[in-house]
Amino acid sequence: MVDRPGAPLLQVEGLARSFDVSPPWLNRLVEGGGRAVVKAVDGIDFSIGRGETFALVGESGCGKSTVARVIVGLHPPTRGRVLFDGADLARSMPRAERRRLRRRLQMIFQDPYASLNPRWRVRDIIAEPLRTYGLCAGHGERRARVEALLAQVQLAPADGDKYPHEFSGGQRQRISIARALAATPDFLVCDEPTSALDVSVQAQILNLMQDLQRALGLTYLFISHNLAVVSHVATRVGVMYLGRLVEQADTASLFAAPRHPYTRLLLATIPDIAFSGRRREPVAGDVPSPIDPPAGCAFHPRCPFAEARCRRERPELRPAGPSRVACHAVEEGRLPAA
């Protein structure tokens, strides 16, 4: 982590976010039972340097999308903080300052069918950030900027007059990217940007995103459950399990030498193109409920190496070779080589 020049663009420190899923007050009173709280994200730390692509991976419900939502400000954090370019967005600050920071931090959504207002023309959708931040001086300038943005995501200028339903999923995702780029951001949070798309279209969108990263110097937080995609785009990877980071490493080391038992399990489930016929370990059990997470290491009920200490004590992220791993077995050196 010392090889990154300058301060990181985004720092996440001890971030936690819980949701109150209790039944309404009256039901609690009549039926008994207390409050129920889901700890969607339970204390995670990471930082992302300029120009990097940091990927968060994990199964559904592990809290990776919640991390994205907290970072862009859709949810306030319950604990911890998010520093964007050194500034905490959850703290109070002058309006103009907040707007300036918010503009630099944009998001691309998973479902290109839900993320565009069906009643707006594409031109107006892409122009919304321009209008909100007053980035263009007049109607003509705005129009020209929208056409430039359309060209940047490889759509035709005439597409601006159409409605979202006239486009395919991949094209809609391009529109979504153009809208995010309209705010001239430095940092893009991409919440599973390709998981709703066909495989062939996925590759186009990923390549477009990489081209844009090079051309505009963007930094990405890339959230995905698709490890093949992550190995293609990410420079560093964080693996999440039940609201916690269990392993964090640069992409090459993570895929070459996964350390945490959960990471190994995830990697073992990637189908390989050669159909090597190797026997795959079936993933034992389900993700436990985040309302009532297991004590100690959250992964212990599914872990083949779990011991008494794992059931008792929550492991912290500690350096292990080039990676940082939260696992007692790794720390104690009792884990067999992968």
Binding site: G73, L74, Q106, M107, F109, S115, P118, T132, Y133
Partner: peptide, 21 residues
């Protein structure tokens, strides 16, 4: 829906989101 969240992230005023989106 995500288009409303997108407008919130862009920083559109809540009244404008309710009215226009």
């Amino acid at each position: 829906k995500e288009y409303v969240q997108a407008a919130r992230i862009i920083g559109v005023h809540p009244v404008a989101i309710a009215w226009r989106h």
